[in-house]
Computed example of a mutant assay.
Amino acid sequence: MELAQSDTNSASGVKTKGIGEYLSSHLRQYGLLFALIAVMVFFQIVTDGTLLRAVNVTNLLLQNSYIIIMALGMLIVIVSGNIDLSVGSVMGFIGALAAVMIVNFDLPVIVTIIACLVMGGLIGAAQGYWVAYWKIPSFIVTLAGMLVFRGLSLWLLEGQSVGPFPKEFQVIATGFVPDLFPAGLGEGLADLFGARKVNVLALATGIAAAALVVWIGLRQRAQNKAYGIEDEPTGFFVARTAIIAAALIFVMYKLSLFRGLPNVLITMGVLTVIYA
């Protein structure tokens, strides 16, 4: 009977709400997006355009990339109905471990990276064990973990800063992907845009990412229609997809005017696709 009902919905489709009605019922979902746009417009005005300058957009990505990467891991924890208060302390401990291994013990970068990834996995598994098998609330377990790994970081570093790191390690977070396209093409685009230079790879990546967003949106919309699932109004879908695609191209264009694609942006992109 449920299957017959599903088939009926699939064949007849579900009536889509109007834009106003849809927004009022999904205000929580899109409220943060509207708030972000408002904040960006405000600071773009009060800073006389400094916010969206190429060098500032690049710096924002470089300086906040670790937050996005941590948020990806936290997404899985929160979706499961838990919380992790220790994520910052664990990150600091793993960073301290990497510093000691590379600077103090002079170990190869690749060995350090693998060891730190394994250690991070073991820490997560250890805390998850108490939550999953002993039913201890994740708030309690990770609160203890926050204090433990904060103390371990101080103990490991002996309260001192450790450095400098070799360039091959620094390039993970501060390096940029070289432009793979001919220099003449970049110079031609620079003349077209009236810019000093253009990184063609960054610009092409933005266009490809925008096209992918449009394709994924259309595909999801077609699937929803096939299964009779209520979807957003067509006008709202077009506007939202256009804004996201335009924002991607704009950000990549700004990056192309400076030094191109940061390595950490590639890392975030790959991790985002894996988690999605």
Rank of each mutant, 00 (worst) to 15 (best):
Ala4Gly: 10
Thr8Lys: 07
Gly13Phe: 07
Val14Gly: 03
His26Trp: 07
Arg28Ser: 11
Tyr30Gly: 03
Leu33Trp: 06
Leu36Asn: 04
Val39Gly: 00
Phe42Ser: 10
Phe43Met: 02
Thr47Asn: 00
Leu51Thr: 05
Asn59His: 03
Leu62Lys: 14
Asn64Tyr: 14
Tyr66Gly: 01
Tyr66Glu: 08
Ile69Phe: 13
Met74Trp: 01
Met74Ser: 14
Ile78His: 08
Ser80Val: 00
Asp84Met: 06
Leu85His: 01
Gly92His: 07
Ala96Met: 14
Ala96Pro: 12
Asn104Phe: 08
Leu107Asn: 01
Val111Met: 13
Val111Gly: 02
Ile113Phe: 13
Cys116Thr: 12
Cys116Leu: 09
Leu117Met: 09
Leu117Pro: 00
Val118Asn: 02
Gly120Gln: 02
Gly120Asp: 08
Ala126Tyr: 11
Ala126Asp: 03
Ala126Met: 10
Gln127His: 10
Gly128Arg: 07
Tyr129Leu: 14
Val131Met: 09
Phe139His: 03
Phe139Ile: 14
Leu143Arg: 06
Ala144Asn: 01
Gly151Trp: 04
Gly151Pro: 07
Leu154Ile: 12
Leu154Pro: 00
Leu157Lys: 04
Glu158His: 08
Gly159Trp: 14
Gln160Glu: 11
Val162Asp: 01
Gly163Asn: 04
Phe165Glu: 01
Pro166Gly: 14
Gln170Ile: 10
Ile172Trp: 13
Ala173Val: 02
Ala173Leu: 02
Phe176Ala: 02
Phe176Glu: 00
Val177Arg: 06
Asp179Phe: 04
Pro182Ile: 06
Ala183Ile: 14
Gly188Ala: 03
Asp191Pro: 00
Asp191Gln: 10
Phe193Glu: 05
Arg196Lys: 13
Arg196Val: 14
Lys197Tyr: 07
Val198Lys: 05
Asn199Met: 03
Leu201Pro: 01
Thr205His: 01
Ala208Glu: 06
Ala209Pro: 06
Leu218Trp: 15
Gln220Lys: 12
Gln220Asn: 13
Lys225Cys: 00
Glu230Met: 11
Glu230Asp: 14
Phe237Asn: 04
Phe237Leu: 10
Val238Cys: 03
Ala239Cys: 06
Ala239Pro: 02
Ala239Lys: 10
Ala242His: 13
Ile244Val: 15
Ala245Ile: 13
Ala247Phe: 15
Tyr253Arg: 12
Leu257Asn: 06
Phe258Trp: 09
Arg259Asp: 10
Pro262Lys: 01
Asn263Trp: 04
Ile266Trp: 12
Ile266Arg: 06
Thr267Leu: 15
Val270Cys: 14
Thr272Cys: 08
